[in-house]
Structures are given as structure tokens and as C-alpha cells.
Amino acid sequence: MEYIDRGHVQKKMRTRLLLNKVFKYLFLAATLFGLVFLAILITRVFIDSIGWLDFSFLTNRLSFNPEIAGIKGAAAGTLWLMVIVGPVTMTLGVGTAIYLEEYAKKGRLHSFIQTNISNLAGVPSIVFGLLGLTVFVRVLGFGSSIIAGGLTMSLLVLPIVVVAAQEAIRSVPGFLREASYGMGATKWQTIKKVVLPAAIPGILTGMILALSRAIGETAPLVALGIPALIIPVPGSIFDNFTALPMQVYYWTIDSALTAEYLNLAAATIIVLLVVLFLMNSVAIIIRNKFQKRY
């Protein structure tokens, strides 16, 4: 007695295997779709920037004349932003992570702060822009200055640093801590001399990711009301500024009037992408080279 109709199964098997094969290549095509798009994007932007991206483009100041316009001011603005975002997120982010991982008791307060941080990570960047506009620009009276932009940006990328630092601290094995306590070190000495040095590669990777997010982020800066005017290269954190992505934005929307602005925007994008690429490469190197497995 046969339970299975062999002929039927074999007949069906062929289509099922064919279907499997067809879909496999379909899925591969879908996977490659994003990569092809990425390749077209980069090629296209690169072609648009040819002839415009040279050394004088980096050192010239902003101008309405596309022939002599450069991004010195915008690049300086972006650097100034990082001067604020770096230390602020490092202090607050690592501090928060140490508190949550080492000091806070696993209870309601701990889970409240944790949930709060993961919710903040999901808040649209433009809403952070509104917060910055209200608190830093208007209430504290910083105007559309570097410090207002930097603090807004710091709050935006803070969750990235906190989560990365938490993971780094969590991955420091317990026996290192216990050895330190065993030698008579106090809790803070253990954190300062044992846990943090062991966690530093992970923390640095998180910091770099946060900074590269802050470098490319445009929406919160636009909301702060940074003007498209030509302004002097900023000299202190209280000066008005423009940043690289802001420059891309203004040149893109004005390219309808002056066609060459499109090339300037493309050239600025290349600069931005090269900076991001370098930063991410450093992050990968740090992760591969210094991260110890216990």
C-alpha cells in the first residue's frame, strides 16, 4: 500500500525546485538593488562635481559667484559644531552609560531612563530642531550660533553614544572588576582604572558614529533658522555659522535659478562623503584592532 503518490510528488517537485531557484535570484536581485542605487548615486554626484572640486573650492569663502565660491566657512562651521558635540556627548553619554550600568539599581528608575533614551532615539531630528529653536535660540538667547546648533545636535546624537557606551561597559567581564575589588580598589577606582580603559574602543566607535551622524544631519540646523546669507568664517562658539550639509541644501534648492549651484552642491557632497568614509574607516579599524575578546 502506498501512502504517497510518487508520480504526483515528482511532478510537483520540479516546479517547486524551479520556483525556489527563480526566487533565489529574485531575492539576490532585490539585495543588489540597493547597492546598484548606491553606485548610481555616488557616480552621478561624482560626475556632477568634476571640474568644481579642487583645492580652491576647499579654501575659498562663500560667494554668489559660483566660479569662486568655496566651502571654507561651511567646513569651519562643521568643525566648530564638532568641537561642541564631541565633548558634550562624550561627557553626558559616557556618564549616563556608567550610571545605568554600574550604579543604578535595576528597577523602575533604571528602566524609565532606559526607555526614555530609546524613545529619544526615535524622535525625528526636526523635532530636536524645534526644541533647539525654542530653548537655545530664543529662551537662552544664543541666536542661530554655533553653541545653539552644537547643543541641539548633541542632544540628538546622545542616545547613540549612550547605547554604544553601555554595550562596551557591559562587555567588560566581571572577573576584571572582581580582581580590582579583590586588590582593595573602591568602586569608582575600579570603574576609572579598569572598566573604562577596557571599554574605550567600544566607546570611541560609538562616538565616531555619533559624530558622523551629526556631521550629515541637516534638519535641526535648518529649524534653528540659519540664514543662507554670506557670513564671515566663525571664530568663536557664539558666532553665526553655516555647515556643510546646510550649504548642500541651499545650493540644491537654488540650483533652479543658477545651474552651477548644482555642481557646487555635488562637490560639497563629495567632501562630506569622503569625511564620513574616513571616520567610519577609523571606527572599523578601532573595532577590529583594539577590541579584546575575553
Binding site: T91, L92, G95, T96, I98, Y99, L100, Y103, A104, F112, I113, N116, I117, N119, L120, V123, V127, F128, L130, L131, T134, V135, L155, L158, P159, V162, T186, K187, W188
Partner: peptide, 26 residues
């Protein structure tokens, strides 16, 4: 040893203040 947790808590509290700031101003 006694001050460190307090200072670290203040750092952690900034994220709560941020949320309060967003919800409050909006």
C-alpha cells in the same frame, strides 16, 4: 565615592530633561 554616583545621575538625568523639554515646549 559618594559624589560620583550623584554626578553621573545628573548626566543620566539630562536625557529625561530633554524629553521634558520636548514635550513641554511642544
Amino acid at each position: 565615592e559618594k559624589m560620583v554616583p550623584v554626578i553621573l545621575f545628573l548626566a543620566a538625568f539630562i536625557s529625561i530633561i530633554t524629553t521634558i523639554g520636548i514635550v513641554g515646549t511642544l
